[in-house]
Design a protein around this nucleic acid. Structure first.
Lengths: 216, 216, 216, 216
DNA sequence: TATGAATGAGCCTTCATTCAT
DNA sequence: AATGAATGAAGGCTCATTCAT
């Protein structure tokens, strides 16, 4: 119980940093801002994090975890991989489009990672997590339903995340040009065209059937 | 001399800033660094740009122009929109994967634009330019060849750029996981699936057509 | 247990401080460093010493005592004051030249005493102790052996200590220029020249006496 | 003329630092104190000296030069080395006993040099200068006057400076115990006993004569 | 057009000290 | 007797900006 106090404070600091970072961005966030936001002295912040860098590392990690968690939730339910992917994409886009603090922080620190090696670590493991998670799902369910991915299943989640992240950037920069419905619809069409339908039961060689199926 | 001394100096400053920014990132770049890189005094930099913000604005504009220019070149040649898009994607990815100074600077300042309205302007017009340029191309050529885009042609370039930008982020963060060949192959497959082949009057049932269909 | 826990801890703290001070110097030693060296918390150090100043005072006192103790040992044995002084000087120089932690701390805090009155107290009593101790020795033995000091015997030990301390400073600053043998030889010659030989009644013209004379 | 301004400011800063250092000591002197004393902003001080250490280095150098200069002046006049040494010692002690700012600063930074290699350099060259200067003087004049030093002439100035510095330390720590007249008298006696008198004209082998001469 | 000097606010960090437990 | 947490005042240093020249 004695030692919990520190953990609590650390938690508060990380949360406050997330808010400030989302509001002002890495380049314009000082420890003073953070201390004010968390309602502590600068010294207290340094008591828990020896250096600003260390704090930022922890914050990035936390933000990645939070985003990953949302990603995880999105996938658990679906059965049919195509439907799963559709609804997941819709969810994933919504999560991004809301521009939660965590999303902003990840975006911001991702740019930092261009010049700071250490920042890459949590980001890399986030992408790897998201990638393998979906890959497993596809490997398990797709074949059973006669859906054959047109590209390496390992790459599908990376492609989808890239699409989402890239669209988010455009939305940030130019919100009027990016309507959520357009994005979602485009995403669904794209997702669909990543698979070919291969009827399990009867014939396999009717490209027309595959055509119709995948185009739906 | 055709150019005033001032214009030349401004050019030097912008170039130098591009280098420094690519090297150190916005958050860790000071006017001192820039002045050193140009070989001028800090005062001189301030003579040409009243404020750091103004300089950054000009630099971002220049970087966007440079990137747009490369994008433009990539599209001019192609005839068949599908082939054009394929080769364009390959080019666009190569340009990004090289991580030129301009690319880095755009990525870096894009993150800044999350918190700085003014920075969004040149970025927005870059995306709009890239978007409309390709849109025009598609509108002109696609129909003539019996290719019908499955999604709003206005959106296709945005999707493609999103894909490229998003993949670039993953490559920055975790280079080992992103092989250039994989990316290019995935992009081509995706590009292909964005179009349906609609048999024009005469030539119809060639297997090639069926092929195009299944590739949708 | 004979000693209270508190006394033991105080001892540990003082010892640790001595080590840290010898290693880093007063100006670059923080309570944190000391707490780390003792293996205690900063709070614990403050429990035993209300203030950093108080701790430093105690440390200086201890260091002075330690140095004085070594000085004391050096003098007890000899009989002939001249011989005693010779061997003592040799010893005293060796002690200094070894640059023990205590020696370093005394030297360091001596400089502090330029600006901090309280620090002067233990240093002053160290010098007084060293002075009176030797003075007594001289007063007792010198006359009996027909040796007459050329300068006030009260001053002789101060002179000798000054010489030793001053040489030490030069050795610290420029070790290559100060060879221990040179120092010792010079000190012995000097010590000898501080006394005149006064023939006592009987034994007179021995060459040894002349020798003693020329050494004055 | 334009560039002189910087030199003037540098001069002011060094002078002010000397005053503050003499007043408060190295360990308790901040750049703020210095900036206040010189009537400039902290930034201005950093403009001229990139780091506190650099400033301190320059100050130590200046202080050493100042002290060396006074030492130099003291020696130029005298003819007879013994007389010269006597009056020089008197002068050197007076200079020290006044505790000028330069003297204090040298004493203070000398203690720092225990833990900071760079500080040793100017101090070492000060001692070397003082040493060689007097050595030359002795070599030139002593023999001509029939005075033979009892110890290596190279070492005489080092011994004398050690004596002076050591006495100064005692005076700082315990002023009441160190009377200037006592010091000077002791120094003269000591100086005298460092030489033997060897009559040039007639016989050289009379130890008695040497005895009388050196004892004077 | 460009420089050198100076400013002052702000930054990250350190530190002696306090206090509840 | 000792700890962990927190404070707040400096501390050294950086930086965008100003200005006389």
């Amino acid at each position: 119980m004695r030692y919990k106090k520190s953990e609590i404070s650390v938690g508060h600091i990380v949360e406050a940093t997330m808010r400030v970072l989302a509001r002002q961005g890495y380049a314009h966030t000082s420890l003073m801002d953070i201390a004010n936001e968390v309602g502590m002295s600068k010294g207290a912040v340094h008591y828990h994090f020896p250096t600003k860098e260390a704090l930022m590392g922890k914050v990035l990690e936390t933000a990645c975890d939070a985003v990953a968690e949302r990603t995880r939730k999105v996938w658990v339910e679906g059965q049919n991989p195509l439907d799963a992917m559709r609804s997941a994409l819709r969810e994933l886009w919504t999560v991004r489009a809301e521009l939660s603090n965590e999303t902003k922080v990840v975006a911001d620190l991702l740019a930092q990672s261009l010049h700071d090696d250490k920042m890459r670590v949590p980001l890399a493991s986030y992408y790897r997590f998201a990638s393998t998670q979906v890959e497993d799902h596809l490997r398990t369910n797709a074949a059973a339903l006669g859906l054959r991915p047109k590209i390496d299943p390992k790459f599908i989640p990376r492609i989808m995340h890239a699409l989402l992240d890239g669209m988010l950037m455009q939305k940030i920069v130019d919100p009027e040009s990016i309507k959520d419905e357009d994005v979602i619809q485009a995403l669904e069409t794209l997702a669909a065209s990543l698979f070919e339908f291969i009827p399990v039961a009867d014939a396999v060689t009717t490209p027309a059937a595959a055509d119709g199926g995948s185009a739906t």
